[in-house]
Structures are given as C-alpha cells and as structure tokens.
Simulated scan of single mutants.
Amino acid sequence: MKHLGSQIAYWDGVGATKTFTHPVNLNWLAGVSRDARVLDYGCGYGRVMAELSEHGFRDVSGVDLSPALIQRGRQLWPDLRFAVLECPPDLTDASGSFDVVLLFAVLTCVPDGHAQRALVEEVNRVLAPGGVLYVSDLVLQDDERNRSRYAAYARQSGTPYGLFATDDGAVCRHHDIAELRALLSDFDLVDERPIEVATMHGHRSQAVQLLARKR
C-alpha cells in the first residue's frame, strides 16, 4: 500500500474484467468549453471518456496504471486517447496542461493516505489555474457487512478504519466525507452531492461526488 502501483497485479487480472458505474453529472460540466483539455485519471477501460466524447468534448484523454484495462479501452474505443501510467502518481504532462481532471472511483483504490495526497498534488500540478477537479468516490457504509470488514481489517493490519480487503484480493478504502474534503483543501469546493452506485462487485453503496476548482 506504499505506492499507487502496489495493486497492479489485481487490476491487470480480475480487476480488468470489472464494470464501473459511477455516473457523470453533465450539468456540472455544462459551463465547460467542449474544447477544454480533459484528463480522466485512473480511466480504467474508458467508460467516462467515451461518455464525455459522445457529449461533444473533443480533447479527452485517459491514463491508468493497468495495461490490461488500457488494452480493453483501446479495443472498445479505438478513437480515444489512452496511455499507461508508468510511474504513478506522476504524469508526463507539463504543469497546467488540463482544464478538467476526473477522479472516478480512484481514491477508493488507493488505500494509503500518503499516496492519496501525492495523487491529488499531482492533479493540482497539471490543472490550469481555475481548472476543474471532479471527484466521485465511496464513503463509509453503515451496514453490518461493511462495519465488520472495516473493523476486521483495522485489527489485522493496524490501518485506518474504512479499509478492507475484497473477496477477490483488492484492498480498498471507503472515506469519511471529511477525509475527502480535507484531501481537496487546496481547492475551492464548488458543489457536492451524495449518490448511490453499484460497486465493481455488484453491491449498492453510498458514494459522493465533489466538484472543486483550482485556485
């Protein structure tokens, strides 16, 4: 859990077969130019990229640390621009290269707090002044199944409450909403909305979306 690439074996294996479902609130992007430079960081197989492209965004690219997910995306949408993130969290792009960055169900896959902060710092670097950061992620669940696995993993590993291991081998993190807001403290929070999503394992779970702007 010390760096973003620590679970690449999972994402290149069973993780590359998953379906991702976090919805895009296009109303939040209504004021964004269709020529805006958009980056989907942790794009998976490009589902969100494809939706944005279908709605007129002309400069959309995506990066992911999993070559298998990138290959899946290229097969599904050969006209979209995909790249493998070779040395996460670092991007090869210059500072201020993007007007919009999306992090959809990415932080939940980065259980280590230091790695999360490094990721957000890198996103901040590549965003242009006034650029938009759109985050969608999982919050702490209040059902017995999740409470039990949070507690069990904390006892076993000495990690913060909210981390857990999935049955097929991933380590994930659900967040107190205050944790997510704190991660974005260098941005101006523009909007926030609770949502319900299906997880990659098919469970209905509570999530949150946050829209922030670079100062």
Rank of each mutant, 00 (worst) to 15 (best):
D143N: 15
A30S: 15
L189E: 11
H174M: 07
A182D: 15
V132G: 00
G73L: 06
R74F: 09
W11L: 01
L140W: 01
V38R: 02
T166Y: 06
R204I: 13
A105I: 08
G42D: 03
H203L: 13
A50P: 13
R193D: 01
D186Q: 14
W28L: 05
Y161I: 11
S148C: 06
S97I: 05
S205E: 15
A151C: 11
H55S: 10
L180C: 01
E179T: 00
G131V: 02
L183H: 03
A9K: 14
T19Q: 04
M1L: 12
S66G: 12
D143R: 10
H203Y: 11
D188W: 06
L39C: 09
Q71G: 10
F20W: 06
T199H: 05
R147E: 15
Q71S: 14
G169W: 08
D112E: 10
D191C: 04
H175K: 00
I70G: 05
V84R: 04
C109G: 03
P111W: 01
I8W: 03
D191T: 06
P129M: 00
L211Q: 08
K2I: 10
P89E: 01
E122H: 04
P111R: 02
N27E: 14
Q141V: 00
Q7Y: 03
P160H: 08
N146D: 15
S66Q: 08
A50M: 13
S95Y: 01
R47T: 11
W28M: 05
R125V: 09
L211S: 04
G56W: 06
L69S: 10
H201G: 07
D79I: 13
D64T: 01
G130F: 08
G162D: 00
V60D: 11
F20K: 01
L211Y: 04
